[in-house]
Design a protein around this nucleic acid. Structure first.
Lengths: 344, 344
DNA sequence: CAATAGTATGACAGCGCTGTCAATAACTGC
DNA sequence: GCAGTTATTGACAGCGCTGTCATACTATTG
């Protein structure tokens, strides 16, 4: 037995295929009794509309593309990121009966742009979600733009009025973390900066400064060390900071990997966390709950962001227009064991 | 300007649309000169076949579904797994111009089966890849089977002749690891078993026994402790094992999380790794390279497995038949810092 | 009750491609 | 050079659906 088609349903329900189409698509102007008949027939035949046929006839696909930097290309433990984004995007997609297409790519390779374009041209998704750091790369964004496909940038901290994007309040959250540390009595709060390429990370430094100021503390170059987002750069930065006289009593790293590096170094130096040193990170990667002590950090609402992005894209596709502006989804502090009152 | 269609290409090339179709699909029996003309026209018009139209006309989709247990549902650090599987599946898909549809699901929820079925019926993928542990659940496999969609099970260690599956040689790899430890002079090699639900894990214990035997060592119940795959169960098992008189000089855990637990406990007890104790794990999760010392472990070729699975599905879809049997992709030892010569 | 304005339904032409099958061209061996 | 093959091409009918537009009903109004 082949699959039921719209014609079968129409025959069983005693209506035209167009009416079935109306019911399936929840179009207005269908009498209730008619709708009931059609729905009964659909259930009876276990009818499922054929997506290909719908797409072909309606000139639109029900695919959302999710484009992100491929972490396995350089073995970062940031895979949790991606899973969360996927999850958020998926939940929006599923509800709307859209599908998610994933496209990890290594931005350091030359062919990225070409691959991306061909992906888009071949699958013609209804919209694309571009995750950071790709969303901050003009070439990538330009390539997507040139295909005319609607897209949303997931760019923590960066706001942009011309295109649609979903962001977090990195800066405010960093300020909040800094204020939290200050409220614990810390006065020498150090900061480890992240990779300069990652724009969001710059905002985190700014937030740190904001937080200091809001807490009545003065900023000191002495307490800021550059990292590059990696665990080992966190270790190096920690070694440097803890060698200072006097050393900081709290270290706030621009991401969790570096914060984990700080914890490792403190452990080796026999420095007790949180009694002698408080450590805070940013991102809330899985590792944050696995290190000992568990890491106080800031959790980006990645899933929610991706979900909003997908929803926006789906909405736009339906209403046939594109929205603009930035939607901000706030990040939240995750207070765990690695932070505590400043030593006396 | 609208998009170029096959008709446009045919007109420009001066051939029929069918001939263009032949060129695009690499069908045989096209004269070289004709092919060149068509290809020139395609390039000139930047023509890309419309997938929806192809799917509709050919009654097959170019989607591969990847179904796996959703780690974010319970926050395991196993997301690296998924990324690797996705990566492998994607690389096969991309080469064949297929797309990957991802479907994480929480097997503990009641609706999983219904959701899965509706996903399949709505998107009608050309094939489905089912990852462990889902691939070992009769209900899940049964549901997929009932839709008639071809599928491949990614089931480490389990072999099955009736359906197609891709497996690793867990058992052999475990034996190899055990032999490796024995070759370092260890004679008291302990083993921490995993969660009984995870079938592959049973194979690891068997491999451990094989390895002991192959190395001329005798198996002792005293050196086997049950864990449940979690970090904390690894800690508990380590505490128990290290309390034995005499303690083992090497501990082989059925997965990396538990091995990391062993490392933590040894660290707390002041036991030097690898000088006093060698520790080995299984899986090569990201954490394995982040713990100190870095963990010797076994790496499952997850990406390769998923790639093979996708390839098999794509091949079957093309050739319109389904292959059977189990393909085995060997796991490889990753020797790092946590193992060394047995103490004298 | 006719005129007007919705509201509900259907007929039908594609969407852009592939599959089928028939037509033609190019070879083969004798 | 001819019948018998085989390689190459094209005409055309759908695939299952949606969009457009025409039609048939049902209220509403003065």
């Amino acid at each position: 037995m082949g699959r039921a088609t719209i014609t079968d349903v129409a025959r069983v329900a005693g209506v035209s295929i167009k009416t079935v189409s109306r019911v399936v698509n929840h179009e207005p102007n269908v009498r209730e009794s008619t709708q009931a008949k059609v729905e009964k027939a659909i259930a009876e035949l276990n009818y499922r509309p054929d997506q290909s046929a719908r797409n072909l006839a309606s000139h639109r696909s029900r695919l959302i593309g999710l484009v992100y930097d491929d972490p396995s290309a350089y073995d970062l433990p940031s895979s949790g990121y991606i899973i969360r984004m996927q999850k958020g995007a998926l939940s929006a997609c599923r509800a709307a009966h859209y599908e998610l297409l994933i496209h990890p790519c290594d931005y350091r390779k030359k062919q990225v742009i070409a691959q991306l374009k061909s992906l888009i041209e071949e699958t013609r998704p209804a919209g694309i979600i571009v995750a950071a750091p790709l969303s901050n790369m003009p070439k990538v964004v330009g390539a997507i733009e040139s295909t005319g496909t609607p897209f949303v940038r997931l760019s923590p901290g960066k706001r942009n009025g011309k295109q649609l994007s979903v962001a977090t309040n990195d800066r405010e959250a960093s300020a909040e973390m800094t204020r939290y540390l200050a409220s614990l009595g810390h006065t020498r709060i150090a900061f480890i900066t992240g990779h300069p390429r990652h724009k969001a990370v710059g905002n985190r430094l700014r937030g740190y400064r904001d937080g200091l100021q809001q807490s009545g503390l003065t900023f000191s170059e002495q307490l800021v060390v550059a990292g590059d987002n990696s665990f080992s750069s966190g270790e190096a930065a920690a070694a440097e900071l803890l060698g200072r006289k006097p050393p900081p009593t709290a270290i706030f790293a621009a991401n969790d990997d570096m914060a984990a590096g700080v914890i490792r170094v403190a452990d080796r130096l026999g420095i007790d966390i949180p009694r002698q040193l408080s450590v805070a990170g940013f991102d809330d990667i899985a590792l944050a709950r696995q290190v000992y002590p568990t890491l106080t950090t800031i959790r980006q609402p990645l899933a929610t962001m991706a979900e909003r992005a997908a929803l926006a894209l789906i909405r736009d596709a339906r209403e046939d227009h594109s929205s603009k502006g930035t939607e901000v989804v706030p990040a939240t502090l995750q207070i765990r064991e690695s932070t505590g009152p400043a030593p006396v």
